[in-house]
Deep mutational scan, measured.
Amino acid sequence: HIECVVCGDKSSGKHYGQFTCEGCKSFFKRSVRRNLTYTCRANRNCPIDQHHRNQCQYCRLKKCLKVGMRREAVQRG
């Protein structure tokens, strides 16, 4: 199976330009649609994997963008 490029979980297909799991797909869509801004409580390099992906939204969104998920691919409302 193909892994989610963000957290390594099982990918459910290509979403917003990259293969991601449902969790990262939904997180990215929600973040972009609502134009959410997050803050990192650590050093902005938190581990984002299957077990830690919900611990830091700032670093999760940063990783989504770093691996090539595209904001412009998210349809507005």
Rank of each mutant, 00 (worst) to 15 (best):
Y58H: 12
D9C: 02
R76S: 10
N45V: 09
R71P: 12
V74G: 08
G17P: 03
R41G: 15
C59G: 01
R53C: 11
F19N: 12
Y58I: 00
C24I: 03
R33D: 11
H52K: 10
K25V: 12
T37W: 14
C4S: 03
C4Q: 00
V6M: 00
Q18S: 10
N35E: 14
H51K: 13
H15C: 04
C7V: 03
N35H: 05
A42W: 08
E72M: 05
D49P: 05
T20I: 15
K62F: 06
C64T: 01
L65E: 13
K10V: 06
K25T: 11
H52D: 08
C24T: 00
R70N: 13
N35F: 03
K63A: 05
H15Y: 07
K14T: 08
V67S: 08
Q55K: 10
G68W: 02
H51A: 12
H52P: 13
F19Q: 14
H51Q: 13
G17E: 07
A73K: 06
R34D: 15
R34G: 14
D49G: 08
K63S: 03
C59F: 00
Q18K: 10
L61N: 02
Q50N: 11
N54M: 11
H15V: 07
C40A: 00
R30E: 12
T20D: 00
C24F: 01
S31Q: 12
K66S: 13
V67Y: 07
S11H: 15
M69Y: 01
K62A: 12
G17T: 05
R53V: 09
C7D: 00
E3H: 07
C24V: 03
Q18H: 10
E72A: 06
K25W: 11
F28G: 00
G68K: 01
R34M: 11
V6I: 09
Y38E: 06
R34S: 06
K14M: 11
I2E: 04
R44Y: 04
N35I: 03
R60V: 07
L36G: 07
K62R: 09
N43C: 01
T37G: 13
E3K: 06
N54Y: 08
D49I: 06
K25E: 15
R30Y: 06
P47A: 11
Y16A: 04
G17I: 03
Q18F: 14
G8T: 06
F27H: 02
K29E: 14
R44N: 14
C21L: 00
L61V: 03
C56P: 00
H52V: 12
A73Q: 13
S12E: 13
H51L: 13
M69S: 01
G77E: 13
T20L: 08
G23H: 15
G77A: 14
K63W: 04
R60L: 15
D49R: 05
A42I: 01
G8N: 10
R34A: 15
Q55L: 09
D49L: 08
Q18L: 11
K63N: 02
R76A: 07
T37Q: 08
D49W: 07
R60A: 08
K63G: 03
Y16Q: 13
D9H: 02
C24L: 01
Q75D: 15
V5E: 10
V74S: 06
R60M: 15
M69C: 04
Q75C: 09
L36D: 06
G77Y: 05
L36V: 11
I2W: 03
F28L: 01
S26D: 05
C40L: 01
Y58S: 11
S31C: 13
Q75Y: 06
H1G: 15
G77P: 11
M69V: 02
Y38F: 08
K10Q: 12
Q75L: 11
R33T: 13
C59S: 01
L61A: 02
L61Q: 04
V5H: 15
I48G: 03
R76I: 11
K63M: 10
N45A: 09
K25R: 13
C64P: 02
G77C: 08
N35K: 13
R71W: 08
S26I: 02
T39H: 04
C4D: 02
P47E: 10
L36P: 12
R71N: 10
Y16S: 10
C59E: 02
S26Q: 15
H1T: 13
I48W: 05
F19Y: 15
L65D: 11
C56W: 02
H15D: 06
K29H: 10
K14E: 15
V67T: 12
E3C: 09
E22P: 10
H1A: 09
R70G: 07
R53S: 07
Y38D: 03
K14A: 15
T20R: 01
V74L: 06
P47N: 02
L65H: 14
Q57V: 03
K25P: 03
Y58V: 01
K25N: 06
V67I: 08
I2N: 12
R70H: 11
V74H: 08
Q75A: 14
V67G: 05
G77H: 11
N45F: 04
K29R: 07
C64W: 02
L61E: 04
H15F: 13
I2A: 01
D9S: 10
R41S: 15
R30S: 07
L61H: 02
G8S: 13
G17A: 04
Y38S: 01
H51Y: 08
K62L: 11
R30Q: 04
H15M: 15
R41P: 15
V6T: 01
C40H: 00
R41M: 13
L36K: 14
G13P: 07
Q50T: 09
N43L: 09
R71I: 13
K29D: 14
C21Y: 00
K25Y: 14
Q75V: 10
S12R: 06
A73T: 10
Q18G: 09
Q50K: 13
V5S: 14
Q50L: 09
Y38C: 01
E22N: 07
N54R: 04
D9R: 11
R44M: 12
K62M: 11
D9F: 10
H1K: 15
H1I: 09
N45Y: 03
R34I: 13
L61R: 01
H52N: 08
R71L: 10
C24A: 01
V5M: 15
E3L: 10
S12V: 13
K10C: 08
F19S: 12
C59Q: 01
P47H: 05
R34W: 05
S11L: 05
Q75T: 12
L61W: 10
R44F: 06
S26L: 10
F28Q: 01
Y38I: 06
K66R: 10
N54A: 10
N54E: 13
C64M: 09
Q55P: 08
C7E: 02
H1F: 04
D9E: 15
